[in-house]
Amino acid sequence: MDWKTFQALLSGVNKYSTAFGRVWLSVVFVFRVMVYVVAAERVWGDEQKDFDCNTKQPGCANVCYDHFFPISHIRLWALQLIFVTCPSFMVVMHVAYRDDRERKHRAKYGDTSKLYNNTGKKHGGLWWTYLVSLFVKTAIEVSFLYILHRVYDSFYLPRLVKCEVSPCPNQVDCYIGHPTEKKVFTYFMVGASALCIVLNICEIIYLISKRIVRIANKMKRRNRNMTTYPQDYNDDSYNNCNRPVSRQDLKDKPPFLKTTEKPPYRLSTLKLNDKIRASAPNLSTTS
């Protein structure tokens, strides 16, 4: 497998990822792909020849090896790396689809018209594509860990295994080559896979919480705009019709308004004088 080509394909995902996604990609290449290529392939290079049984019965060693190692660690990890990085291409394909739509839109309506502000920004459908890819990657990681745990009994590699599978004549003792070294690499790859699961979960929480905060801020701004409009109508400039008119206000007004508007206390004084004359016509209002 050409891992350089595989790395070149995934390098395009890095510019569309969040901080957690970039860390995840670094862990995949440094702690998994590099360890796989440099060391793990050599440890499991020809493991069937190193699987030695204390019998010369033809076919017994092959059957016992297939019984205890139905799938090789190294091939299972290669398959895991391929499957776990495939969901990231969903994001790249979605961005390429957006770029194609943007190109067609500009060709139809001109270069000044834009369909997207930024085709690589995680809004709308791209946000959902990115979130679904994280869930798929997490599910693949968990599935492969379960398969490894199920097949190899808690990731443990013993030094000696006892085989009673036909065509072995009786119980045969078989010895695994480099068991301690294989055990160390197995635990290391399992730990790296668990770290990738934690990073995926953190990125999912980060994306969802950021989306919730953005929606909450939009709702706050909308409520703030709705509450500012009634306050504008409650301003004194709109409700000064019931305010008493002072003499200074009358001086500042034009002459034609001075004749029409009178202070409210003048009206009340005239009405009081009329009532006094009506009740006591012989009395004078002056003392």
Rank of each mutant, 00 (worst) to 15 (best):
A40Y: 13
H73G: 03
D66A: 10
D66L: 04
S72L: 04
F31H: 06
W44N: 06
G59P: 09
I82S: 03
P58I: 01
V92Y: 06
R22P: 04
K56F: 06
Y36T: 02
F51L: 08
C60D: 11
L25G: 00
Y36L: 08
L25F: 03
D66R: 07
G45Y: 15
R22S: 08
H67I: 07
M34G: 13
V28M: 15
V63D: 07
F69A: 03
P70E: 05
Y65H: 11
E41V: 15
I74V: 14
V92I: 14
N54F: 09
V30P: 00
V23L: 15
L81T: 02
A40G: 04
W44V: 05
S26R: 10
Q48K: 15
V30S: 12
E41H: 11
V28C: 05
Q80G: 11
C64F: 07
L79K: 06
F31V: 03
L76Y: 07
C64E: 09
R22I: 07
G45A: 14
A78F: 09
F89G: 00
N54R: 11
F83K: 13
H67Q: 09
G59F: 12
Y36A: 01
V23P: 03
V33L: 14
A61C: 06
N62T: 11
L81R: 00
E47I: 03
D66Y: 01
V38Q: 11
K49V: 07
D50T: 09
A61M: 05
K49Y: 11
A61Y: 02
Q80N: 09
F89V: 01
A19Q: 12
W44F: 15
T55V: 13
A61W: 01
P58D: 01
P87N: 00
K49G: 08
L76R: 10
H67Y: 13
V28T: 11
F29R: 09
R22W: 05
V43E: 15
W24D: 01
T55I: 04
C64Y: 06
F83Q: 14
W24C: 00
V91W: 02
G59D: 13
Q80E: 12
R75K: 06
L79Q: 10
F31D: 12
Q48H: 06
L81G: 07
V23R: 13
L25N: 00
E47V: 03
D50H: 14
K56S: 12
A19W: 10
A19P: 01
T85F: 00
M90T: 03
Y65I: 02
H73K: 05
L25R: 01
G59A: 10
L76S: 13
N62G: 05
D46T: 14
H73A: 04
V30D: 11
V91M: 15
C86E: 03
I71A: 08
L81D: 10
W77K: 00
S26E: 05
W24N: 01
R22C: 09
L25Y: 02
E41S: 10
V23E: 12
L79N: 10
E47L: 08
A78L: 13
S72C: 02
F89A: 02
R32E: 12
V28L: 12
G45L: 13
F83E: 14
V38D: 10
K49F: 13
F31C: 02
V84C: 11
V28R: 04
V38E: 08
F31P: 00
Y36N: 03
V37H: 07
A61S: 10
V63W: 04
Q80L: 15
V30L: 04
